[in-house]
């Protein structure tokens, strides 16, 4: 909507300003708010470095240490009395690995899980920034402007999504350097994987933001984060396939969006059989992202101001 100077500008009369086209659209300010958060991150390389160091340690230490593939191949055990040939044992091991992880390479299996891990751990911090904004009065200042309340929340969601995707890309590169199997990676597969990660990041960021909407104290926010992040990680197929979990845990894993993003990534990058059809993975993730973003925007109108 174009507005004349006279109707918008009450006080200051600026020379040569002429008619100012004020952008009164619903989305005005959204990118500025997103960029505000991003700046704090890309302008401080130390922060970027620290935020990827954790998954790299997980990949390098945990991933390399949990060398399931070597369970049989690197040992010289045998069943007493039966002299099973080494080749047979190796084949058994390969079959066991394939049926468990869908690949003989646990490191590659875990690497895809780490992509979800980094998304989860970045998204989890999205709520913190709104707690700080509230404490320092910045949120009140935002709320006194005509920016859409939903944009305040979505600006944080998008910045968190962009950050987490960038970090996931770095983790992927590190994984490849450390020996991830790249044989089946295609451009389409990569794009699909990042789409799945995008959807999960959006849903998770919106979820954690929603939990922080009314919070004024960061300790309780930290507690909520810790309460949610490890269960979300462990009760998923990110570290271990859910099909070998006890039944009740499988149910949780089946509901956990982290499982679906990881599953899509494994199917697309490693070509392993998934625990759900690829289409369903995306359907589930889309529903998750849309639902939580929608609820987040709705609650922002309701709860940001008191």
């Amino acid at each position: 909507m174009a507005t004349t100077e006279a109707s918008v500008i009450g006080g200051l009369k600026v020379k040569d300003e002429g008619q100012v086209r004020i952008n009164k659209g619903m989305l005005h300010g959204l990118w500025a708010l997103t960029n505000r958060e991003l700046k704090k991150w890309y302008k401080v390389p130390v922060l970027l470095f620290l935020s990827i160091i954790q998954p790299v340690i997980w990949l390098g230490l945990f991933g390399k240490a949990m060398n399931f593939g070597a369970l049989f191949t690197s040992t010289s055990f045998n069943i007493p009395g039966l002299n099973i040939p080494k080749a047979t044992l190796d084949q058994l091991a390969t079959q066991a690995m394939l049926s468990t992880f869908g690949t003989t390479d646990y490191f590659s299996f875990l690497a895809v899980g780490m992509l979800s891990f980094i998304i989860l751990f970045t998204a989890m911090f999205s709520g913190m920034s709104i707690v700080w904004d509230r404490r320092f009065g910045f949120l009140d200042k935002l709320l006194s402007t005509p920016v859409a309340r939903g944009s305040i929340v979505m600006g944080k969601v998008f910045s968190s999504v962009i950050r987490s995707l960038a970090q996931a890309a770095i983790v992927l590169v590190v994984a490849v350097v450390l020996g991830m199997d790249t044989g089946k990676i295609t451009v389409v597969g990569l794009a699909g994987t990042f789409l799945a990660l995008f959807l999960m990041a959006m849903g998770l960021s919106a979820l954690f933001l929603m939990l922080a909407l009314r919070s004024t104290d960061w300790q309780s926010q930290m507690a909520i984060m810790n309460l949610l992040n490890l269960p979300l990680l462990f009760a998923s197929n990110a570290l271990f396939p859910s099909k070998l979990m006890p039944g009740w845990l499988q149910v949780v894993a089946k509901l956990n969006p982290v499982s679906y993003a990881t599953d899509a990534g494994r199917q697309l990058l490693l070509g392993v059989p998934g625990f759900a059809p690829l289409g369903f993975d995306f359907l589930y993730l889309t529903a998750f992202a849309v639902l939580f973003s929608g609820v987040g925007i709705f609650l922002s109108w309701r709860y940001l101001s008191r």
């Binding site: 005005h28 700046k39 009065g137």
Partner: peptide
């Protein structure tokens, strides 16, 4: 309270709020 974003410059703060008011 002092609400300006400490991690940004003074100019960036003003430009951010200008954007939130839809000013080109």
């Amino acid at each position: 309270e002092y609400t300006a974003d400490e991690d940004m410059t003074g100019l960036e703060n003003i430009m951010l709020f200008a954007n939130l008011y839809g000013i080109p």
